[in-house]
Amino acid sequence: MGSSENIIEKFYEAFANLDAERMIEWYHTDVTFEDPAFGILKGDQARNMWRMLCETQKGQDFTVQASNIEFNDTRGKARWEAYYTFSKTGRRVHNIIHAEFEFKDGKIINHVDRFNLYRWAKQSMGFKGFLVGWTAFFRKKLNKKVRHYLSEFENEQHNEKTLVR
């Protein structure tokens, strides 16, 4: 199988253990990540997004299961399912995600997660999600909000590192 041997499996194994550092070891320096919630993230932003997600789910009822993993030396794909409680509303979410990967130098250079944002909005936000979850306005607002959380997380990480020095 060459250089891409089980990268996807190892990535989701680490995710199931909420081990962001092990997950992002599989990311190429120049990685690009994309999904309906965050939009497009590159490099450190993509890595920090996983750090933030893992950090916020520790001690929660989060589980992830990957299946239908296929890959060769240059590409791969998987289906993964996340089960968790959406912290803002306390509602249970079961999100089904289809991931596609491109590899370079034995690492993930491109990672695209696709899921039904409307289905997610209805689960996570109930009636409000049912009403607006399908709109472009909702997607833009969500992108803005999660990117704000990400930059706050990155600032905290930066400040912690600065204090340690």
Rank of each mutant, 00 (worst) to 15 (best):
M1V: 07
S3Q: 11
S3I: 04
S3R: 02
Y12S: 10
F15H: 12
N17R: 15
L18A: 14
E21N: 13
R22D: 14
M23Q: 14
W26F: 15
V31R: 02
E34Y: 05
G39D: 04
G43N: 14
D44H: 05
Q45C: 05
N48F: 08
M49R: 12
M49G: 03
M49V: 01
M49T: 00
R51A: 12
M52G: 04
L53A: 11
E55V: 07
Q57M: 15
F62Y: 15
V64F: 00
A66S: 13
A66N: 06
S67N: 08
E70K: 14
D73W: 02
T74W: 04
G76P: 04
A78V: 11
R79F: 00
R79Q: 10
W80K: 08
T85K: 13
T85Q: 10
K88I: 02
K88T: 05
G90D: 04
G90W: 07
R91V: 06
I96W: 00
I97T: 11
F101M: 09
E102T: 12
E102V: 13
E102A: 14
F103V: 03
G106S: 12
K107I: 09
I108H: 08
I108T: 04
I108R: 06
H111D: 13
D113A: 05
R114L: 12
Y118L: 00
R119P: 01
Q123S: 01
Q123F: 03
F127Q: 02
G133V: 02
T135V: 06
T135P: 04
F138L: 02
K140M: 01
K141D: 00
L142N: 09
L142Q: 07
K144H: 08
K144Q: 10
K144N: 07
K145L: 01
V146I: 14
R147H: 07
S151C: 05
F153N: 06
N155F: 03
E156C: 01
K161A: 15
K161M: 05
T162W: 09
